Simulated assay, not measured.
Amino acid sequence: MTTVNDIDIQALADTKSAVQANPLAGQATFSLSGSWNGGCRLDAQTGVLTAGGERDETRVARYTLSSDEPVALLGSDTAVSPAEYLLQALAGCYTVTLAAHAASRGIELGGFRLDLEGDVDLRGFLGTDPTVRPGLQQIRVRLHVDAPNTTRGQVEELVALVEKHSPIRDTLVNPVQVVTTLA
């Protein structure tokens, strides 16, 4: 098995070929269930992954995620805030996308670090100004990439690929349908 950046190159190529041959193989549905824990607190657990139209029963791990808000934002600061989870989701997706695309191009990474910031204007959340969106106004990502045998231009091309192919970034920059129902 040949790996670059701890990515199995053959598995990556096989996955790409399988999805090209059968687009259904590239469809995945993630799930999560959460329960309110008083105040601004939520405890959630990951659920079943459906991949290629099949429930993935081999994924036995269930992860618990807790969220809260900082005291300054009405919470009790007992867990990560939802905004920090959003930044983590983007950072994690950038990591997957950067490592995989670098590996597929034979670019060996010595390491990389991400610094993220997101700005929110609470007037939108609180409903005090109808012209202000309740969501984050801007997210800034600063990548520090160590790719010793790669030119700055190649790293810039890699970052452009990350921006183009990151599913979480795409979700953030393009409208996505969110359907809310009452059970």
Rank of each mutant, 00 (worst) to 15 (best):
T150C: 04
C40L: 13
G38F: 05
A11T: 01
E157Q: 13
V132A: 05
T95Q: 09
R105M: 12
L86S: 11
L109H: 15
V48D: 14
Q45K: 04
A61I: 01
P70G: 05
L143E: 10
T46Q: 01
T64V: 08
L65Y: 06
Q27S: 05
Q20T: 09
G127E: 09
S76A: 14
L98M: 12
P70R: 11
G118D: 03
L65S: 01
R55V: 07
R152I: 07
T171M: 15
D170H: 12
L143G: 10
N5V: 11
Q20C: 00
F112R: 12
C40D: 06
V80C: 15
A18N: 11
A102G: 13
R169V: 02
D56T: 01
G47R: 02
A99Y: 10
T181Y: 00
P23C: 07
D8M: 09
E108M: 15
C93R: 14
Q138D: 07
A28Q: 10
D129S: 03
L182E: 03
V162G: 08
M1E: 10
T64D: 05
D129E: 09
E54N: 06
E163P: 00
L161M: 08
D121G: 01
A11E: 09
H144E: 13
E157P: 02
V4H: 04
L24A: 14
A51Q: 14
W36Y: 13
F30C: 01
S76K: 13
I7H: 02
S33H: 06
D14K: 02
V178R: 06
L161S: 08
H101A: 11
Y85L: 13
V71D: 13
D146G: 02
G153P: 00
D68A: 07
A61W: 00
S33R: 06
N22V: 03
A147E: 10
V162N: 06
V120Q: 11
A11L: 10
V80E: 10
A18W: 00
R59W: 00
V48Y: 02
L74P: 00
R133P: 06
S166V: 05
T171E: 07
Y63G: 00
P70I: 08
D146C: 07
A147L: 03
G110K: 11
I139A: 01
D43V: 08
Q177P: 13
S104W: 04
E117V: 09
V145R: 11
N22P: 03
R113C: 00
V145D: 06
T50P: 05
R55S: 13
A28M: 13
L65Q: 01
T50L: 10
R41G: 04
A18I: 06
T151G: 04
T150W: 02
T131L: 04
T64L: 03
T171G: 13
L114W: 06
Q20I: 05
V60F: 00
Q88A: 15
P82M: 12
Y85Q: 10
L143I: 05
G92N: 15
T95S: 15
G26S: 03
H144M: 07
Q177I: 07
L136A: 04
E117H: 11
A79Y: 11
E54Y: 01
C93S: 14
V132R: 04
L98P: 11
F112Q: 10
A28E: 02
N22T: 11
S76V: 10
A160E: 12
N22R: 04
D56V: 11
T128D: 07
A91T: 12
T180R: 04
A25N: 14
S81T: 15
N174A: 12
V48E: 15
P130W: 00
G75Q: 07
A100Q: 15
I107T: 14
Q45T: 06
S76R: 10
I168Q: 07
